[in-house]
Design a protein around this nucleic acid. Structure first.
Lengths: 151, 151
DNA sequence: TACCAATTGCAAATAATTCTCAGGTATCCG
DNA sequence: CGGATACCTGAGAATTATTTGCAATTGGTA
């Protein structure tokens, strides 16, 4: 079920080596999982752990956490803090496909939307302060129509 | 040391009453604290708790959490998820003064910036889906110049 | 002023995440 | 090749932030 994505994997491998880190089977499995997920998926650490187990590439939850964190630091994954009390991850999209989130803070219903201007603002602001951009997210907190009524 | 801000407090009181909720001394203290904080302050629940104690208006940490959550739901406070592992709060600014954050994911150094377009995008997107806007935040994750060097 | 639902404090419970540490393994170097 | 070094992992304990249950208290209305 799991397909490889050698190109991306090699890119990451190179980035790891630059830091003196290694590409391991566990890291490959996690990357493959994300490459094979549909783009709207926002996976929690626990989701990732369960899917890996289903994929017959089980590993410890600690490793999942460690890897998700590392990949986010490297800009490979994107760490999302939406309305729930745990983080979610997805592949960090190339700037031109980046999307953002509109979240109902009551029922956590989430709508994705795109906005080209956002990424431009992010790049401009980061560059202006000498920062190296990793990820740029607009999160809109709001109440969905249903929750507005049930107040 | 703590000054009152009767106007804002009354506005919130009205909003509470609409929901059958009450304005209590604890809620007043917390609101006052935020009104008397400098605008760049991002207070964690624990920060709030400690400052209240210093201000001689101590209360239980649970109440702090409950109040911060309630005020965020009401749109009075803004809940920030920056780079640390806990939430931060600040007064939810009126739309025309809204600001956003550029955060170093390594050392958590944070820079605030303004962007008028952002709020407009937020309003437009929310309205387009029938959502009632509460807050709109652009968070840029990046590496600051110092952390870039120490990789 | 009496009443009732909302609120609080406290302590215990939860949930997510991180840490510790021992055993394994890739990579470098001679 | 063989050892030294540093990286990595799994397992479970530990930590941290946050939430919850409950009995006692209180705000605000009738």
């Amino acid at each position: 079920m799991v397909m490889e994505n050698p190109h991306q994997t090699n890119v990451v491998k190179g980035a790891l080596h630059e830091r003196g880190l290694r590409m391991t089977p566990q890291r490959i499995s996690i990357l493959s999982l994300f490459h094979n997920s549909s783009s709207g998926d926002h996976l929690s650490a626990d989701d990732v752990h369960q899917r890996l187990t289903q994929n017959e590439t089980p590993m410890s939850l600690s490793t999942v956490y460690r890897t998700l964190h590392l990949m986010s630091q490297m800009g490979v994954l994107r760490e999302l803090e939406l309305a729930e009390d745990h983080k979610h991850y997805e592949l960090n999209p190339r700037s031109d496909e980046s999307h953002h989130h509109l979240v109902c803070i009551r029922c956590t219903k989430t709508i994705e939307f795109k906005s080209e201007t956002m990424q431009k603002v992010g790049e401009k602001v980061a560059k202006g302060s000498g920062f190296a951009l990793l990820d740029c997210q607009l999160v809109i907190h709001a109440l969905c129509p249903v929750c507005q009524r049930s107040m």
